[in-house]
């Protein structure tokens, strides 16, 4: 009776399931090491803001770079239809920049090309990530979420000077 109702699994298929599990576990280990040992992390809640007033007072009323200590910066970026403020920023090579990005109207995206900085920008929330710039050059930051008629033209540039 038991053999009759037991699950029939072909030995090849059993091996395949084992291979699949091993594969997935290895990938899980890889992303965990990248995330928790190498510090390649995704954003977590930073703070809530009121999108109706966020551009009137506080740090996003005067968006841009602030140098905290030599080589350490904060960048407050305001996304709006259809531009980023500021449109341009310049940091020296080796700069460690913490980005605080929010929107005063609809959702936007903020992707800094050639880096791992790529976040959703949601009204009422602040997207925060920190990036260190080791290579000189011009990095475009582009809007990656549809935000209305002018979406395609919405971008800015970060200059990393040698």
């Amino acid at each position: 009776m038991t053999s009759k109702s037991s699950m029939h699994i072909d030995p090849y298929e059993r091996n395949w399931i084992i291979i699949s599990i091993v594969l997935l576990v290895s990938f899980a280990v890889a992303i965990s090491v990248a995330g928790f040992a190498f510090g390649i992390q995704v954003p977590s809640p930073e703070q809530r803001v009121d999108p109706r007033t966020v551009a009137d007072s506080g740090p996003w009323a005067d968006p841009g770079l602030r140098e905290l200590s030599p080589g350490k910066y904060e960048a407050y970026i305001l996304a709006q239809t259809w531009s980023f403020l500021p449109r341009e920023m310049t940091v020296p090579i080796g700069a460690e920049v913490t980005f605080y990005i929010t929107s005063k109207d609809v959702q936007h995206g903020f992707k800094l090309q050639e880096t791992n900085l790529n976040v959703q920008v949601v009204p009422g929330q602040v997207s925060k990530l920190t990036v260190t710039f080791d290579r000189p050059g011009d990095y475009d930051y582009i809007c990656t979420e549809y935000c209305g008629s002018g979406h395609a033209a919405m971008f800015g540039t970060l200059h990393v000077e040698p």
Binding site: L23, I31, T132
Partner: peptide, 23 residues
Amino acid sequence: VLTLILLWGSVFLILLSRGMTVG
């Protein structure tokens, strides 16, 4: 599976090469 490892791995290497996002 080999293709999967190769393609997934190449994207993963891009991620690693671009460095950390959290100081």
